[in-house]
Design a protein around this nucleic acid. Structure first.
Length: 424
RNA sequence: GGAGAGGUGGCAGAGUGGUUGAAUGCGCACGCUUGGAAAGCGUGUUUACAGGAAACUGUAACGGGGGUUCGAAUCCCCCUCUCUCCGCCA
């Protein structure tokens, strides 16, 4: 959520910046500012009315204390009209505040000035790449065939027990999965991130805090009996740790990491993009989160991108890094870099990480602040990134590393798997 | 799930209708004191919004919402969370 003061002061600039997302919010901003003006004047009126009422109430108290009953009662009568005005004004103020709030929720984050204009993922800009795409020859199998052949993942069994998109990982497949999780967590810890195991369900307030609510409600599983949401990403609990918190400036940078399963309804997804591990309702992910001083967040984002690149390289996967264009940028993000790895049998790029700087957008919703050198509270910046999402990494590993007699495990993972090749 | 108790400032903990944004203690900050430190003494120490260049002023907030009242942390109603005991249970 954008700060209203920022909109007041930089309306034109914000409208212009949001054009990068292919949306025109000028009219919305004007409406917002109108409401804000109305709200402020009503609030001012209410405040002085309340001041007057408070003053009289105090006087009445004193009159009673002095035993001047009659004068006190006379003063009481005087406040009747005041009370009625106050009540009406109060309602006006709160309804204006409410409508202001809901309008504010509708405006997406202002893209960073380095975000390129564009409509879709086709307009994203590749900023780096690495690794080499293996030549698998004609007999390359997609990972869903390999998973079946080596008995690593059972999609059918998942359908029976839960539904499509909830696979069973079996034997060496399960061990590889666990190895990846442990490898990612260890790497993150070595890079200075504090490990956390958060709850996998969150309340409504947390959903609002990081921006999943109100607009992306349909993407989350909702346990209605208890009004809890299954987390779509560890970002939600890890960032909400800092909701309503005023951190100390010297605590920056705050770096945390956590592994969680992620649950996504993926309403509306279908077709061959969802085949195998490409898109699941439940998947594992290790997330890194940073809470930063505003002046350091840009640098922090670069560090996070470099970190993610490092682990992708250790896994020897061909990758590319994309700077997301305005049209592909998430609602809450100011700047995002996506990582894709090449899955050589499917012959396609798969997104495995998204590293974003939200600047103050989430912090404003979260009321996540710090005291600056002048002892003024200021919104912090929040950032996060996948490091990494497992299924597509698994897909690429299986496909890219297939050989005539098995699937080769990357060297860095062998200490974690306990085997260096998946065999029948 | 049943019964009970309770949610007050960074923490502990008073306060049951009237200068209470809130005693007191701890903590913290600054100053005095000291060779230095501790102790001691003094001053200060919530947040949000509005107005203001600032000093500051006004309003709101004692879990959340609503009500009674001239006036509510204090009374009433609803919700919520926590704790204790019992039950169930990994």
């Amino acid at each position: 959520m954008l700060e209203i003061t920022r909109i007041r002061e930089n309306k034109e600039q914000i409208a212009k910046a949001l054009k990068v997302r292919n949306i025109d919010v000028s009219a919305q901003l004007d409406e917002l500012l109108n409401i804000d003006n109305e709200w402020r004047s009503a609030k001012g009126e209410l405040d002085s009315l309340a001041a007057e009422a408070n003053k009289i109430a105090k006087e009445i108290g004193q009159l009673f204390a002095q035993g001047k009953q009659e004068e006190a009662n006379a003063a009481k009568a005087k406040t009747q009209e005041l009370k009625e005005n106050e009540k009406a004004l109060k309602e006006k103020v709160s309804s204006l505040a409410e409508s202001l709030q809901s309008k504010l929720y509708e405006i997406p984050n202002v893209p960073n000035e380095t975000v390129p204009a564009g409509n879709s993922d086709e307009d994203n800009i590749e900023v780096a790449s690495g690794g080499s795409i293996p030549d698998l020859g004609e007999h390359a199998k997609p990972h869903w065939d390999l998973a079946q052949e080596f008995n690593l993942i059972d999609f059918e069994l998942g359908v029976k027990v839960s539904g499509a998109g909830f696979p069973f990982y079996l034997g060496q497949g399960a061990r590889l999965q666990r190895a990846l999780i442990n490898f990612f967590l260890d790497e993150a810890r070595d890079a200075g991130y504090k490990e956390v195991i958060p709850p996998f369900v969150v309340n409504e307030a947390s959903g609002y805090g990081t921006g999943q609510l109100p607009d992306k409600e349909g993407q989350m599983y909702h346990a209605q009996t208890d009004d809890l949401y299954l987390i779509p990403t560890a970002e939600v609990p890890l960032t909400n740790m800092f909701r309503d918190v005023i951190v100390k400036e010297e605590d920056f940078p705050i770096q945390i990491t956590g592994y969680t399963p992620c649950f996504r309804r993926e309403a509306g997804s279908y077709g061959k993009d969802v085949r195998g591990l490409n898109r699941l309702h439940q998947f594992d992910k290790v997330e890194i989160v940073r809470i930063e001083h505003p002046k350091n967040s840009r640098k922090a984002l670069d560090e996070m991108v470099a970190y993610v690149q490092g682990i992708v390289e250790k896994l020897n996967l061909p990758f590319r890094i994309l700077r997301l264009c305005g049209g592909d940028l998430g609602f809450t993000s100011a700047l995002t870099f996506d990582f894709e790895v090449y899955s050589a049998a499917q012959e396609k790029w798969l997104e495995v990480s998204s590293v974003s700087n939200f600047e103050t957008f989430q912090a404003n919703r979260l009321k996540l602040r710090f005291k600056d050198e002048n002892k003024k509270s200021q919104l912090a910046h929040t950032l996060n990134g996948s490091a990494l999402a497992l299924p597509r990494i698994m897909a690429a590993l299986l496909e890219n590393n297939q050989t005539a007699d098995g699937i080769v495990i990357p060297e860095v993972l062998v200490p974690y798997t306990g085997f260096n090749k998946i065999t029948k």
